[in-house]
Design a binder for these strands. Structure first.
Length: 416
RNA sequence: GUGGAUGUAGCUCAGUUGGUUAGAGCGCUAGUUUGUGGCACUAGAGGCCGUGGGUUCGAGUCCCAUCUUCCACCCCA
């Protein structure tokens, strides 16, 4: 039997309504904040991610789906959304659009990783990006919108963690300080940390190896090395969060795995599942690095599979599955034609009506009507056609009323 | 990439120290005297026992490999 590739998932009709609800909710909120949808290609030139995401990151080094197409071009399935959006921003001259430019996307991402809870090789992110502002007001708006999404989806036990990793200037100083702190002790660190020492020192702070963690315990904090500008930026953001009663934790250990981040970085973490469901931050150099003009930007991405999992856990019972308003059953050939006509007319009026297309017995039709949870049932037979009246039965209460077989009257009855 | 568990019907799972045509519940289809669902009863369909090798007179059961799924590390959403 051919099975789906490792790390992929089928989303079946019994679950899709959850996705539709959550996606709709998120997109409504984003629209409310002025974000417009953008869609970019599933695959891009490999170089985009090498330069955009950063060639020292794990995502690029070992998790990309990269291949040569028939024309010999190196192609990569997008492992994240931001790089492609920035490419589109530059390529379509969006820098000349009114600032700030707010975009959102809802797209599948691809990473070759080992599968476990909340981690797939094909997964979905809804993300938002703001281009053209380096103000802390944008940082606030983006964090506040993410917070709103968590709240409106009614997801409990989510903690907001924020940090600032500074700009080029302060990060340079900090890296020096960090290097001299680790310095001679580097032999005590794990191999990956050793390899990161030169090129990506800050990542060492993120290591979960016991030994490395212990060694990092007294490491200098980036926050102490922020330049004046970055410091006030960070403090202003905190003030706004305080004002809005948005609870957060400053976590100097958040450095994020993508190289493009600067200044504010943040994560919404599910305490019980132990994973991040929304992650994001500012990336003031990325656009220039990818060949655009100097433009500040900030954004985040929501891990949809993780959100759905949490949402299912807490809110499943609150959602109603779609069900037919009416099932029209028939008895013989003549009434079958009549029933079909009525079904057709009601659908023209926008009513969700079901009827038999299997030529089944009346009993089987009614059983089916029950299984699909139809609200009302009408049975058409010789008498009904003759009288042009039928019983309309409420399947929940079992009560029925006499009704004229006129689609407008039926519509009115059902909708009341 | 590393470590641990797992795989029998659409789903959840039984399957004795290796021994005839592999089972149950749920679900699905049909029927229970023919124009009314849910309940009950009856019957039916549906399995290369993940895949490929091996041991054996004989393998769902034992051995090896491989794949999948799940969990942890790493990393991330």
């Amino acid at each position: 039997m051919i099975q789906r590739p490792k790390g992929t998932k089928d989303i079946l009709p019994d679950e899709i309504y959850l996705w539709q609800y959550v996606e709709k909710k998120i997109e409504e909120i984003m629209s409310l904040y002025g974000f417009k949808e953008i869609r970019t290609p599933v695959f891009e030139s490999t170089e985009l991610f090498l330069r955009g995401v950063g060639d020292t990151t794990d995502v690029v080094q070992k998790e990309m789906y990269t291949f040569d197409d028939k024309g010999g071009r190196s192609i990569t399935l997008r492992p994240e959304g931001t790089a492609g959006i920035v490419r589109a921003f530059i390529e379509n001259g969006m820098a000349s659009w009114p600032s700030p430019l707010k975009l959102f996307y809802n797209m599948a991402m691809y990473r070759y990783e080992n599968v476990q809870k909340g981690r797939l090789r094909e997964f979905h992110q809804i993300g938002a990006e703001v281009f053209g502002t380096d103000s802390y007001l944008a940082d606030f708006e983006i964090v506040e919108m993410a917070n709103r999404i968590i709240n409106d989806l009614n997801l409990p036990n989510i903690v907001l963690e924020i940090n600032s990793i500074g700009c080029k200037e302060c990060r340079g100083k900090y890296q020096e300080a960090l290097k001299s702190f680790i310095g001679s002790k580097i032999d005590e660190y794990c191999d990956t940390c050793k390899s990161r020492f030169e090129k990506n020192t800050m990542r060492i702070l993120d290591c979960k190896e016991k030994k490395c963690k212990e060694n990092n315990a007294n490491a200098p904090s980036i926050i102490d090395y922020l330049c004046e500008n970055c410091k006030t930026h960070f403090i202003n953001l905190q003030k706004l969060l305080d004002n809005s009663n948005i609870k957060y934790k400053i976590n100097p250990r958040i450095v994020r795995g993508l190289d493009y981040y600067t200044k504010t970085v943040f994560e919404f973490v599910s305490e019980e599942e132990g994973y991040t469901i929304i992650g994001g931050g500012r990336y003031d150099y990325l656009i220039k690095e990818l060949g655009g003009q100097d433009t500040s930007a900030i954004g985040f991405a929501i891990g949809m599979e993780r959100v759905i999992e949490l949402f299912k856990k807490y809110n499943l019972d609150k959602l109603e599955k779609s069900r037919p308003e009416l099932y029209i059953a028939y008895i013989d050939d003549a009434s079958c034609n009549f029933a079909n006509k009525l079904k057709f007319n009601l659908r023209q009026l926008g009513i969700y009506v079901e009827g038999d297309i299997l030529q089944r017995s009346l009993k089987a039709q009614l059983k089916y009507a029950d299984k699909i949870n139809a609200k009302y049932v009408i049975v058409i037979g010789e008498n009904e056609i003759k009288d042009n009246y039928a019983q309309i039965k409420n399947m929940q209460t079992g009560n029925s009323d006499k009704i004229k077989l006129d689609e407008n009257i039926i519509k009115q009855y059902i909708k009341k």
